[in-house]
Deep mutational scan, measured.
Amino acid sequence: LDMDCLPYGWEEAYTADGIKYFINHVTQTTSWIHPVMSVLNLSRSE
């Protein structure tokens, strides 16, 4: 699993305190969880 590779439309950013988060420019949303990890967690719960 390549954690450096973000899906299309996603960008890694940091808060003023240096905390990493992710921006989805396609849906105009943000997430604290890496988008690949959130997809993996969803697929495990099914």
Results as ranks from 00 to 15, higher is better:
Leu1Gln: 15
Leu1His: 10
Leu1Asn: 12
Leu1Asp: 14
Leu1Glu: 13
Leu1Tyr: 11
Asp2His: 15
Met3Arg: 13
Met3His: 12
Met3Thr: 15
Met3Trp: 05
Met3Asp: 12
Met3Asn: 15
Met3Val: 13
Asp4Gly: 10
Asp4Pro: 08
Asp4His: 02
Asp4Trp: 08
Asp4Ala: 07
Asp4Phe: 07
Cys5Pro: 10
Cys5Ser: 14
Cys5Asp: 15
Cys5Thr: 14
Cys5Val: 11
Leu6His: 02
Leu6Phe: 07
Leu6Gly: 04
Leu6Glu: 07
Leu6Gln: 03
Leu6Tyr: 05
Leu6Arg: 06
Pro7His: 06
Pro7Gln: 01
Pro7Glu: 05
Pro7Ser: 02
Pro7Arg: 04
Pro7Ala: 06
Pro7Asn: 05
Pro7Val: 04
Pro7Trp: 06
Pro7Tyr: 04
Pro7Cys: 08
Tyr8Leu: 10
Tyr8Gly: 13
Tyr8Lys: 14
Tyr8Ala: 14
Tyr8Phe: 11
Tyr8Asp: 15
Gly9Asn: 02
Gly9Phe: 01
Gly9Arg: 02
Gly9Trp: 05
Gly9Ser: 06
Gly9Ala: 03
Gly9His: 02
Trp10Phe: 03
Trp10Glu: 08
Trp10Thr: 02
Trp10Arg: 02
Trp10Tyr: 04
Trp10Val: 06
Trp10Gly: 05
Glu11Thr: 04
Glu11Val: 08
Glu11Ala: 04
Glu11Tyr: 01
Glu12Cys: 08
Glu12Tyr: 03
Glu12Arg: 03
Glu12Pro: 03
Glu12Gln: 09
Glu12Ile: 10
Glu12Asn: 04
Ala13Trp: 04
Ala13Gly: 04
Ala13Ser: 08
Ala13His: 00
Tyr14Pro: 00
Tyr14His: 07
Thr15Met: 03
Thr15His: 01
Thr15Asp: 08
Thr15Trp: 03
Thr15Phe: 01
Thr15Lys: 00
Thr15Leu: 01
Thr15Glu: 02
Thr15Asn: 03
Ala16Thr: 09
Ala16Cys: 07
Ala16Trp: 01
Ala16Ile: 05
Ala16Asp: 13
Ala16Val: 07
Asp17Ser: 06
Asp17Asn: 07
Asp17Phe: 00
Asp17Gly: 04
Asp17Leu: 03
Asp17Gln: 07
Gly18Leu: 01
Gly18Pro: 02
Gly18Ala: 01
Gly18Arg: 03
Gly18Glu: 06
Gly18Thr: 00
Gly18His: 02
Ile19Gly: 12
Ile19His: 15
Ile19Phe: 10
Ile19Val: 13
Ile19Trp: 07
Ile19Tyr: 13
Ile19Thr: 14
Ile19Pro: 04
Lys20Gly: 02
Lys20Cys: 04
Lys20Ser: 02
Lys20Met: 02
Lys20Thr: 04
Lys20Pro: 12
Lys20Leu: 03
Lys20Phe: 01
Tyr21Gly: 02
Tyr21Ser: 04
Tyr21His: 00
Tyr21Asn: 05
Tyr21Lys: 01
Phe22Trp: 11
Phe22Lys: 06
Phe22Ser: 02
Phe22Ala: 00
Phe22Ile: 05
Phe22Met: 09
Phe22Gln: 03
Ile23Val: 13
Ile23Gly: 01
Ile23Lys: 10
Ile23Thr: 04
Ile23Asn: 05
Asn24Ala: 10
Asn24Met: 00
Asn24Lys: 00
Asn24Tyr: 06
Asn24Glu: 05
His25Cys: 03
His25Thr: 13
His25Gly: 05
Val26His: 14
Val26Tyr: 13
Val26Gln: 13
Val26Pro: 08
Val26Ala: 13
Thr27His: 14
Thr27Ser: 10
Thr27Leu: 15
Thr27Phe: 13
Thr27Ala: 08
Thr27Pro: 04
Gln28Cys: 07
Gln28Arg: 10
Gln28Ile: 06
Gln28Val: 03
Gln28Phe: 09
Gln28Tyr: 01
Gln28Lys: 13
Gln28Pro: 03
Gln28Ala: 08
Thr29Lys: 04
Thr29His: 02
Thr29Val: 15
Thr29Asn: 04
Thr29Pro: 00
Thr29Ala: 08
Thr29Trp: 07
Thr29Tyr: 07
Thr30Cys: 12
Thr30Trp: 09
Thr30Val: 05
Thr30Ser: 15
Thr30Arg: 05
Thr30Tyr: 00
Thr30Glu: 02
Thr30Ile: 01
Thr30Ala: 06
Thr30Asn: 05
Ser31Lys: 09
Ser31Arg: 03
Ser31Asp: 01
Ser31Trp: 01
Ser31Phe: 04
Ser31Ala: 03
Trp32His: 00
Trp32Lys: 07
Trp32Tyr: 10
Trp32Arg: 09
Trp32Ile: 06
Trp32Ala: 04
Trp32Met: 11
Trp32Gln: 02
Ile33Met: 12
Ile33Asn: 11
Ile33Tyr: 11
Ile33Arg: 08
Ile33Ser: 13
Ile33Val: 14
His34Ala: 06
His34Gly: 03
His34Ser: 09
His34Tyr: 05
His34Leu: 02
His34Phe: 00
His34Arg: 08
Pro35Asn: 02
Pro35Leu: 01
Pro35Phe: 01
Pro35Gln: 05
Pro35Gly: 03
Pro35Asp: 01
Pro35Ile: 03
Pro35Trp: 04
Pro35Lys: 08
Val36Ile: 07
Val36His: 14
Val36Gln: 15
Val36Met: 15
Val36Ser: 15
Val36Pro: 07
Val36Cys: 15
Met37Gln: 15
Met37Asn: 15
Met37Thr: 14
Met37Asp: 15
Ser38Pro: 12
Ser38Tyr: 09
Ser38Ala: 06
Ser38Leu: 04
Ser38Asp: 13
Ser38His: 06
Ser38Trp: 11
Val39Met: 11
Val39Asp: 15
Val39Pro: 15
Val39Phe: 13
Val39Gly: 15
Val39Gln: 14
Val39Trp: 07
Leu40Gly: 14
Leu40Val: 10
Leu40Ser: 14
Leu40Gln: 13
Leu40Lys: 13
Leu40Trp: 12
Leu40His: 13
Asn41Pro: 09
Asn41Glu: 11
Asn41Asp: 14
Asn41Tyr: 06
Leu42His: 15
Leu42Gln: 12
Leu42Glu: 14
Leu42Cys: 13
Leu42Ala: 12
Leu42Phe: 10
Ser43Pro: 12
Ser43Ala: 08
Ser43Phe: 08
Ser43Leu: 05
Ser43Trp: 00
Ser43Gln: 04
Ser43Glu: 14
Arg44His: 10
Arg44Thr: 10
Arg44Gly: 15
Arg44Ser: 13
Arg44Glu: 15
Arg44Asn: 12
Ser45Asn: 12
Ser45Cys: 09
Ser45Pro: 12
Ser45Lys: 11
Ser45Gly: 14
Ser45Ile: 13
Ser45Met: 00
Ser45Arg: 11
Glu46Tyr: 08
Glu46Trp: 00
Glu46His: 06
Glu46Asn: 12
Glu46Val: 10
